[in-house]
Computed example of a mutant assay.
Amino acid sequence: MDYLSFDLSEDTEGVTTLEALASTSKEQHGAVMAEVQQVLDWAWRSFPHTHGPVDEGMDWDHDLQVSVEPGGWHAVTLTLTGSQRFVEEFFARFGGPQD
């Protein structure tokens, strides 16, 4: 990944959140969205029937926000919540969280 780096947080109920934020020029926006699509394609392929609220027993859920900021910068936020199994496989595929 060249644009997305994921930060990790966990709540007291064992739900892990992975969040990535990228703010780029419009020329780089397509490359950012390609990385987002790569992550989501992997998640849908790897966990096709367990997308939904993790606190209801599903393996993963996601939220994608895209906006244009002042000065023409494109902001993309991809938030994934996941079970322990999802997060372990995510790290195996994409590497661990950024420090």
Score class of each variant (00 low, 15 high):
Asp41His: 06
Trp42Asp: 01
Trp42Phe: 14
Trp44Gly: 10
Arg45Gln: 13
Arg45Ser: 15
Ser46Asp: 13
Ser46Gly: 06
Phe47Leu: 03
Phe47Ile: 09
His49Arg: 07
Thr50Ser: 13
Thr50Pro: 00
His51Phe: 08
Gly52Val: 10
Gly52Phe: 05
Pro53Glu: 13
Pro53Tyr: 06
Pro53Cys: 02
Val54Thr: 07
Val54Arg: 01
Val54Met: 01
Val54Ile: 05
Glu56Tyr: 02
Glu56Pro: 00
Asp59Pro: 05
Asp59Gly: 09
Trp60Ile: 13
Asp61Asn: 13
Asp61Trp: 07
Asp61Ile: 06
Asp61Cys: 08
His62Tyr: 11
Asp63Tyr: 05
Leu64Ala: 10
Val66Ala: 03
Val66Cys: 04
Ser67Lys: 06
Ser67His: 02
Ser67Ile: 05
Val68Ile: 12
Glu69Thr: 11
Glu69His: 02
Glu69Val: 12
Pro70Tyr: 05
Pro70Ser: 15
Gly71Tyr: 04
Gly71Glu: 11
Gly72Glu: 08
Gly72Val: 11
Trp73Phe: 10
Trp73Gly: 06
Trp73Asp: 12
Trp73Arg: 09
His74Ser: 10
His74Trp: 07
Ala75Val: 09
Val76Thr: 15
Thr77Leu: 03
Leu78Met: 03
Thr79Leu: 03
Thr79Met: 03
Thr81His: 04
Gly82Val: 12
Ser83Ile: 13
Gln84Glu: 14
Gln84Thr: 15
Gln84Ala: 14
Phe86His: 06
Val87Leu: 03
Val87Arg: 03
Val87His: 03
Glu88Phe: 04
Glu89Val: 07
Glu89Thr: 10
Glu89Gly: 12
Phe90Trp: 08
Phe91Tyr: 15
Phe91Val: 11
Phe91Asn: 09
Ala92Tyr: 03
Arg93Glu: 15
Arg93Trp: 02
Arg93Phe: 05
Phe94Thr: 14
Phe94Val: 12
Pro97Gln: 14
